[in-house]
């Protein structure tokens, strides 16, 4: 499906499906691809209700050709859009959640989402190349328990930050977590906010570059930690971004929320992000930012 979607051979996509096969090969690719989109011919746009053929949708990078509204991307789709052909090595793919609080039904939840998404957890991290620039990457997948942050997500993101620090790579984190800090791991999830922020402080002090990309949806513990801390904060058009969820705010203040509240455009207007970037331009914009920094820093990076 990915191949069809964005025309790239996506070697790394198979990494997440390792658990289904003993070998790390591609044999099961066809099967699991089908699972991702049970009705693989068409999709209904949530915004304009138009029925769109998936081939057409893929060609438009999952942006509705009728009304222009953005569909969410999976982490694998996002990577295939950002990373040069096959130039991605996934790290820490095997890290899995525990149930440290013995929270009711948590294991079942994890199993269910692992099954549904083929991922072990809500983030994919690794090192990839973007227009020839080596980058430490983390991409959150909002399908996995709403892309919420638990111990594993916090750990993987922190390691991605430390990898950037150690290898002197620019760091790009694509956030898309509507769930914030994951309830099932209680305070351990909340503390991942401090953990990731602490790691970012070290990167910051070492002069590292962090580009934060905010996509729909970025809320709570994700927006209130690493997602807001970029040297440059970019966001996709229409993405919903905020601290508190709109329902909670509405209940608290007891009135309707203004039009366009908590969208990327709203955040731009209020000075919270640097730039709203169209999906198709994202990779180039990120690469240009890296390029400008590297010209100044003169570090040994780029096309090897």
């Amino acid at each position: 499906m990915l191949k069809d979607l964005f025309g790239g051979k996506s070697k790394y996509v198979t990494v997440e499906r390792k658990k289904r096969s003993e070998e790390k090969g591609n044999e099961h690719k066809e099967d699991s691809d089908k699972k991702e989109m049970p009705d693989d011919l068409w999709t209904k746009c949530k915004s304009c209700k138009q029925i769109i053929f998936n081939k057409k949708l893929a060609k438009s990078l999952k942006i509705c050709p009728e009304c222009g509204s953005y569909f969410r991307l999976t982490a694998a789709e996002r990577l295939s859009l950002l990373v040069d052909d096959e130039k991605f090595e996934e790290y820490d793919a095997d890290l899995q959640a525990e149930n440290p609080l013995d929270f009711p039904d948590y294991e079942q939840k994890i199993d269910k989402y692992q099954e549904q998404t083929g991922l072990k957890e809500a983030v994919i991290t690794g090192i990839g190349e973007m227009n020839g620039w080596q980058v430490s990457l983390a991409v959150i997948d909002s399908r996995f328990l709403m892309g919420s942050m638990n111990s594993v997500v916090g750990e993987k993101v922190t390691r991605a930050i430390e990898r950037a620090l150690e290898k002197e790579l620019p760091l790009v984190i694509v956030s898309g977590g509507g769930g914030g800090a994951r309830m099932y791991e209680g305070m351990l999830s909340l503390m991942q906010m401090a953990k990731t922020s602490a790691a970012l402080k070290r990167l910051d002090q070492a002069g590292g570059l962090f580009i934060s990309v905010l996509t729909d949806p970025t809320y709570g513990g994700i927006s209130a930690s690493f997602a807001s801390l970029g040297d440059v904060n970019l966001a996709e058009p229409q993405a919903k971004i905020g601290f508190a969820g709109p329902r909670v705010i509405k209940q608290t203040i007891n009135r309707d929320l203004p039009e366009g509240f908590q969208t990327a455009e709203f955040l731009l207007e209020h000075g919270m992000i640097d730039k709203v970037v169209e999906r198709a331009d994202l990779k180039d914009v990120i690469a240009r930012i890296i390029d400008i920094h590297k010209l100044r820093g003169g570090e040994n990076n780029g096309t090897e």
């Binding site: 807001s228 969820g245 705010i249 608290t252 509240f261």
Partner: peptide, 12 residues
């Protein structure tokens, strides 16, 4: 959780 808080960047 309020409008002003969001406008002024509670998360940040």
């Amino acid at each position: 959780p309020g409008i002003g808080a969001e406008e002024r960047g509670q998360a940040e």
